[in-house]
């Protein structure tokens, strides 16, 4: 195992004390160390939000881009070099709100990256507005009479779109979450992990105690990961209990293996052949 400290950097972390992002950050370090992926071989891609700042606190390569757009950046990087280990960090507003169309496209492409959605059901960076996963009636300074929209269900959405790897984690169960991240990274295809993350400042509803009372680890003996019916049932069940673990996993064909051009190796490693271009021009006379 690589030393956990290898992933540490000294960049000043400005998350609130007690922020659920710390649990996610520690789980990522642990997952990378356990897989023995040296930090210089990891590419982190993120959007905008407190979650999207995560890459700054890891000693890896990163591209911290625009709100909602991490998945297209990751897709482009993957096309250029499909040997990359890509972890995508997004928040719920980032991924399910601003970047919703890109999530749908990533599901359809079966983009071979691991997506970690730090889902705290609130906008933290912009100080507390309702997010796509905030429940109906969630009150904030921007929604003083409560949010008018229902919460979306990312797990059910992904399952309905043929996702091959769906898991839910919890920032308060770091070792368990690290295991999910490992499994997601090992999965050939799009691995989506929705992480129940606590916002200690702006979400008084979904607190540590809220989750601690409801979290239920999925028992692999009782829940077969390849049982889609059981998974969708689990995804749609009322939030009296919140199952965490791998909800669904099946074999799929990842994006980059669907593209014949890429079977000759990563684009970045291919040799340019000017005579091939000349041949094309010659065909035109």
């Amino acid at each position: 195992m690589v030393d956990l400290n290898a992933y540490h950097n000294d960049f000043e972390n400005k998350w609130c004390p007690g922020c659920g992002n710390f649990g996610v950050l520690n789980a990522v370090k642990k997952a990378l160390a356990e897989q023995e992926i040296p930090p210089e071989n990891v590419l982190l891609v993120s959007g905008i939000g407190q979650a999207a700042k995560t890459p700054h606190f890891l000693n890896c390569n990163f591209f911290h881009g625009l709100h909602g757009r991490a998945l297209p950046v990751a897709a482009g990087a993957l096309l250029a070099n499909h040997d990359l280990n890509i972890l995508v960090h997004m928040g719920d507003g980032d991924c399910y709100g601003e970047g919703g169309n890109h999530l749908l496209a990533a599901l359809r492409r079966n983009l071979d990256v691991t997506l970690l959605v730090h889902d705290n059901r609130v906008y933290g960076l912009t100080k507390g507005q309702a997010s796509p996963t905030s429940r109906y009636g969630f009150a904030s300074s921007a929604q003083p009479f409560g949010s008018f929209s229902d919460a979306m269900n990312p797990m059910a959405l992904a399952l309905s779109q043929g996702a091959g790897f769906i898991a839910r984690g919890y920032c308060g169960e770091v070792d368990h979450l690290a295991g999910l991240i490992r499994a997601g990274m090992a999965y050939p295809g799009f691995a989506m992990i929705d992480i129940m993350q606590v916002c200690v400042t702006y979400n008084p509803v979904n607190t540590y105690s809220y989750y601690n009372e409801r979290i239920l680890m999925i028992d692999e003996k009782e829940h077969r990961a390849d049982d889609w019916q059981a998974a969708i049932h689990m995804a749609l069940q009322p939030e009296e209990t919140i199952p965490i673990g791998i909800m669904y996993q099946k074999e799929t064909r990842p994006f980059t293996s669907r593209i014949r051009t890429l079977s000759d190796g990563p684009l970045i490693a291919r040799t340019r052949d000017p005579s091939a271009v000349q041949a094309v021009l010659d065909e035109l006379g």
């Binding site: 590419l43 891609v45 591209f63 881009g65 625009l66 757009r69 998945l71 297209p72 950046v73 990751a74 897709a75 482009g76 990087a77 993957l78 096309l79 250029a80 070099n81 990359l84 169309n101 890109h102 749908l104 496209a105 684009l267 970045i268």
Partner: peptide, 21 residues
């Protein structure tokens, strides 16, 4: 690659370029 929208297209281009092509 046909992107899901133009926003994706430019972000994919930037991702690919960042990664070295």
């Amino acid at each position: 690659e046909q992107a899901e929208d133009e926003i994706a297209a430019i972000n994919m281009v930037i991702g690919a370029s960042f990664a070295g092509v």
